[in-house]
Design a protein around this nucleic acid. Structure first.
Lengths: 149, 149
DNA sequence: GTCAATATTCGAATATTATTCAGTTAAATA
DNA sequence: TATTTAACTGAATAATATTCGAATATTGAC
C-alpha cells in the first residue's frame, strides 16, 4: 500500500492550505464577502507568503529540535546569502536567519533524533565556510510558529 | 471605516486555515477522497496542531525580528515552564524553546522596529527570574516556518 | 499459511464553502 | 464640494470538501 503520509506532510509543511473565510467571518462578526475582500487584498499586496500546517513534530518523526548558531569564515562572511540559499533546500531546516551579534547564521533544525541530527551536521553543516558551530538543544517547545503547544 | 486587517492577521497567524484537499490530490496524483482520509487521520492522531498563514512580516508591521537568548535565575531554573507559559501569551513572541546549553530559553520575537523591540524587552523580558539576556538581531530572513522567502 | 478483523483506497452523490457580481457606502483627492 | 477610488455587502453562482458504500489491502491471532 502506498504510504501517502510523508508526501502529504511535506506539502502541508510549506503550503497547500487556504484561509477559512466563513469561520473568520463568524469569529469577527463580519460578512464573509468582506473577509474575502480583505484576505485577497493581503494576498495581492504580498503580505501573505503561504498558508501551511503546524505539526506536533514528535508525531511526525521530527521530535529532535535545535538551534544551530554558526560563524562563517572571512570569505563567506561577505556573502552569507549564497550559503543560506543552499541550506534552505534542506527540509530539516525550518528557519534560516542572517544575524548580527556573536553569530552570523541562526538555524532552527528538526530531525527524528540525535543520531539523525549528527548525520545532518556531518553532511550539511560541516563544510568549508563554517568556522564555528554551537548547538542549543530544545528540551521542550512551548510555542512554535506562533502556535502554543 | 472599520479596519479589519489587524484582527484578520491575528487570526491567520495562528490558525483559521484549512488544507486544500483538491490541490494536494492533483499534486500527488491521488484521489481527493484518499487525501481527505489521510488528512483526517493526521488530525485525529494529533499530528496536526493548526493550519495558519505565513506572512511577509515587513508588510504587516513586524519587520524587526530577533532571537532572544535568556538565562534564568536559580529559582526559575527548576521550573522554566511557568515563565514560558506566561511569555507565550505575548503575540510578539513567535516561538519559545526551553533549551540545554549556554541558554535556558530561546525566543524568536517580531516587532515593528527597534523602538518597539526596546519597549518589549523593558516590559516583558526584564523581570525577576531573568538574569542575563543576549539578542541576536536578524538582518535577513532566508527561510521562516519552513517557507523560503 | 489461513481466516477474521481492521485499516485504507476510491468513485459517485451530496453538502458545504468560497467566489463572483453588481450595487452601495465611505474615504481620499483635487 | 465634486469626483475618483477604495471598501463593504447581499444574493446568486461556482468550486470544493465531505459523506457514503463498496472494494481492496494489511494486520494479527491461531
Amino acid at each position: 500500500m502506498k504510504d501517502i503520509t510523508p508526501r502529504l506532510i511535506s506539502l502541508l509543511k510549506r503550503g497547500y492550505c487556504t484561509p477559512q473565510i466563513g469561520r473568520i467571518a463568524k469569529q469577527l462578526a463580519e460578512p464573509a464577502t468582506t473577509i474575502h475582500y480583505n484576505v485577497k487584498k493581503l494576498e495581492k499586496e504580498g503580505a501573505v507568503k503561504s498558508y501551511k500546517a503546524v505539526f506536533n513534530y514528535k508525531k511526525i518523526d521530527e521530535g529532535f529540535c535545535c538551534y544551530v548558531l554558526i560563524n562563517l569564515s572571512p570569505d563567506e562572511y561577505g556573502n552569507p546569502e549564497r550559503i543560506s540559499a543552499d541550506l534552505a533546500k534542506h527540509p530539516e531546516i525550518e528557519s534560516i536567519d542572517i544575524c548580527t551579534g556573536d553569530w552570523e547564521l541562526v538555524l532552527k533544525v528538526r530531525t527524528k533524533d540525535q543520531d539523525a541530527y549528527y548525520n545532518f551536521i556531518k553532511n550539511v553543516i560541516s563544510r568549508k565556510g563554517v568556522t564555528k558551530i554551537k548547538t542549543l538543544t530544545s528540551l521542550k517547545q512551548i510555542k512554535t510558529e506562533s502556535v502554543t503547544i
